[in-house]
Design a protein around this nucleic acid. Structure first.
Length: 154
DNA sequence: GCCAACGTTGGC
DNA sequence: GCCAACGTTGGC
């Protein structure tokens, strides 16, 4: 049995917010559109039950807003085959898919968002991937220590 | 809207 | 294998 693993996933709320997740059927959604190999590889290493910090990017203020959990491990992202989709990838074929998605289910929304600004002030979080200069990875690992610290802030 | 940082592509 | 050009991300 493996121990719990923690992640952080970014979403622009104008595209998909935590409230959209709450309103989704069974409060569950598939997470498509990841087109970065490192992010994809992290998704592939997710297992059912892994916990995810839901982060709102490209808004004022950027913030961690709640928690979701993995309910289905990586499987091919169908949008890569769809010519009309924004995330269509002509180099991808159903027999050789390049991109995966996972399913996640809503767990809870924080009573208040924990802003990027607040996170930066925490010495204990200095090592967080999110806080590294130029970091724009949309799927990233979070240590259990970082996880606990962020929950205590929330 | 700007632009720095980053990842990917493709010519060579 | 190098690297310039390009497209994207995401804070500000």
């Amino acid at each position: 049995m493996k121990s719990k693993t923690y992640w952080l996933m970014k979403s622009e709320p104008s595209a998909f917010s935590i409230d959209d997740l709450i309103r989704s059927p069974s409060q569950t959604t598939y997470w498509d559109g990841v087109r970065n190999y490192q992010a994809r590889n992290f998704m592939r290493s997710m297992t059912v039950g892994d916990q995810i910090l839901f982060y709102h990017s490209n808004v004022d203020p950027p913030a961690v807003v709640g928690i979701a959990e993995v309910v289905k491990t990586a499987y091919p992202d169908s949008t890569q085959f769809d010519k009309k989709d924004k995330h269509y990838d002509p180099k991808s074929t159903p027999s050789q898919p390049r991109w995966d998605m996972i399913d996640m289910k809503y767990v809870r929304k924080f009573q208040r968002p924990v802003t990027l600004d607040e996170l930066r002030k925490e010495t204990a979080l200095k090592g967080m991937v999110l806080l590294q200069k130029g970091s724009r990875l949309s799927v990233q690992p979070v240590t259990s220590r970082e996880w606990r610290h962020i929950l205590s802030l929330a």
